[in-house]
Design a protein around this nucleic acid. Structure first.
Lengths: 188, 188
DNA sequence: TACAGTGATGACAGTCTCTGACATCCATGT
DNA sequence: ACATGGATGTCAGAGACTGTCATCACTGTA
């Protein structure tokens, strides 16, 4: 491997969030982000497939946690598997991550194109979770419905977790939301 | 109002799906679509905010049906409201629409950028449904969870509806999926 | 019939995202 | 010293999208 200033991807990510926070997503060009990281525009696109992607990085690791939890579980019913997957995901959202998550979400919420990318990521997460559940012997329709409901709960928990002043841990919030889900949908 | 060849938007939509089906979404330029419709690139962007949007048109009308059903219902529990909204949406997917829906979906499924837009649209649909339910006196969390689950069922029903050889109506399929949802999530 | 008003379209220049092709650099291993 | 290979720089270019202004076709009114 070649040896330059290390962590180009990391530098780009930091510079991007910083600039986006100041000037908004559309108020910043890729060339500016690259320059702030001491690189060129072309190199930015070698690290991130497009301008939005620089804000959606940990996604793969999160998906990995979900799938690992499902694969290791001994549960059988789909919603039990979902519950364990979500529970495992809590380790991804430690206390130190909360401030970064907050400013990142502020940027995303202010731009339709970023909300679009976020929708896709959540969708992919749900699809991956569903196929993990299916691999455990659950029928496709049931697996998908359970996974979608679970991701819905996950999103709701996340948006609550980053509220200013919220003190509960991610795991606590998520457990509460899952209870609510069972109540609401179970009542028909 | 000015009077030219009418239905510019319609002509663009037809030309776009036709060209996309032949050459794929990325294999067609906006200028080509416009030319096929007897217009210029600039005019395309006056009718559709971007290249993808030409494939996502009826969305507003569908959302209207959902909201109307919720507003007119006398039900109280969130999942009952969702059920009625989905039931009403069935009138959107008449038999004559099935072939168009099929080819449209084939194009979308073949392109990540279009899948992304579709995710966003489904998300917006869910958000609109949730706020309609909330307006009927349901707490926000419960309304969102119910709406998300309902849209999940809706998507599942749609994807089944356009399967080649499927003969059941949209409404029949949707009812079956909703039953499955209650069973899966209700079991915890 | 003449004429001003209105909304849709055309023409054109320009910015920015994203890609392909090729040269260059730096550390490593020999 | 020298070859290697991955990461970066440089350059050219296509295509999406926007701003601006002119133009056209129809409408209503005198």
């Amino acid at each position: 491997m070649g040896r330059w200033e290390t962590g180009a991807g990391e530098r780009l990510r930091v510079a991007a969030l910083d600039l986006f926070s100041k000037n908004g997503f559309e108020g910043v060009t890729v060339a500016e982000i690259a320059a702030a990281a001491g690189l060129t525009e072309r190199t930015f696109f070698r690290h991130y497939s497009d301008k939005r992607e620089v804000l959606f990085d940990g996604q793969d690791r999160l998906e990995g946690l979900f799938l690992q939890a499902v694969a290791e579980s001994r549960a059988v019913r789909p919603m039990e598997l979902v519950t364990e997957a979500l529970s495992r995901s809590a380790e991804f959202f430690g206390e130190d991550r909360r401030p970064w998550s907050r400013s990142r979400q502020t940027v995303i919420d202010a731009n339709p194109a970023l909300l679009e990318r976020e929708s896709l990521k959540m969708n992919s997460l749900a699809a991956a979770l569903a196929s993990g559940i299916e691999a455990r012997g659950v029928l496709a329709v049931a697996a998908t419905l359970a996974a979608d409901s679970g991701i819905s709960a996950f999103r709701m928990a996340f948006s609550q977790w980053i509220v200013e002043g919220e003190e509960r841990s991610f795991e606590q919030i998520q457990a509460a939301v899952l209870d609510e889900l069972r109540t609401v949908v179970g009542l028909g």
